[in-house]
Design a protein around this nucleic acid. Structure first.
Ligand SMILES: [Zn+2]
Ligand SMILES: [Zn+2]
Ligand SMILES: [Zn+2]
Ligand SMILES: [Zn+2]
Lengths: 135, 135
DNA sequence: GTTGACTCTATAGTTACTATAGACTTTATA
DNA sequence: TATAAAGTCTATAGTAACTATAGAGTCAAC
């Protein structure tokens, strides 16, 4: 199949597929006589694996590592574990941050009566006075 | 004060301050005879305001809008409100996403006994079989 | 008068794409 | 068969918000 079909099947953009190839996440496929990329089922699997990893927010570099590991099936897998666990921690950390952010934003939002002028706006006043506090 | 002192006071990097100036978030300060930037208390306030907004994850473009609004104190403030409320929604959305991500990652993590080989690794198997499922 | 710390501008790199431009190939239609 | 449309090719630049570097100039102290 040509790149456009692969793109549709995987819900990736054509450019993204070419990008993954350039970044060595996808093997360079064969080419047709007219120099078009030709993919097969194995390419499809490869790309779906990458996509799956991306939905888990693994970086391209981490995915590259996983792909490398897969090519040495008899070594220990604890590095895979470490990677996933460190991700979980990062995600947890980010959730904490965002929850605190949400609180702050809600607090700010409540200080605005929503029918006054910029000058009277509690949000801007709060943003400015927090500044003063911090200095 | 010179840029290094401002950087220390605000816990920003020198490059970031210059970057904010280039991006028109900070006014271009006066210069010394030797062409060094010279800042005052007002610059300090400005930068702290920006920093405060950044900790709330406002984009530089949004901060620029806020700064512009502040210079017309008598217009309505509802646009400020809209901006903040739309942020809150985005943050909530992201928290949801991350929670679901965390679940998936935890599930993956549990499928690894942590003392086998790559070939036996439940994580990689799961990542690959999820792929198959999606196709 | 020279060392060292600081500053200056301009430029490139980061991440994971996305969006062009300009040329070529293939498919569909008249 | 001619041509138009759709798809593909490479190469390059843009995105956000910085960060890092090179190479040169400034300033204070010893
Ligand atoms: Zn990671
Ligand atoms: Zn308001
Ligand atoms: Zn926003
Ligand atoms: Zn494992």
């Amino acid at each position: 199949m040509k790149i456009g079909e692969l793109a549709k099947l995987t819900d990736c953009s054509v450019q993204t597929i070419r990008y993954y190839e350039k970044e060595q996440l996808m093997k360079s496929p064969e080419r047709s006589e007219g120099n078009f990329r030709l993919y097969n089922k194995s390419s499809l699997k490869q790309l779906m694996f990458i996509k799956q990893c991306r939905t888990l927010d693994l970086t391209l570099s981490e995915i590259r590592q996983l792909l490398e590991l897969q090519s040495s099936p008899s070594i220990q897998c604890n590095s895979v574990n470490k990677m996933i666990d460190s991700h979980i921690q990062q995600v947890e950390q980010r959730i904490k941050e965002l929850n605190s952010l949400k609180e702050q934003l809600n607090y700010l939002s409540n200080t605005c009566s929503n029918n006054g002028t910029i000058e009277q706006c509690g949000i801007l006043q709060k943003l400015t006075s927090d500044v003063a506090k911090n200095v």
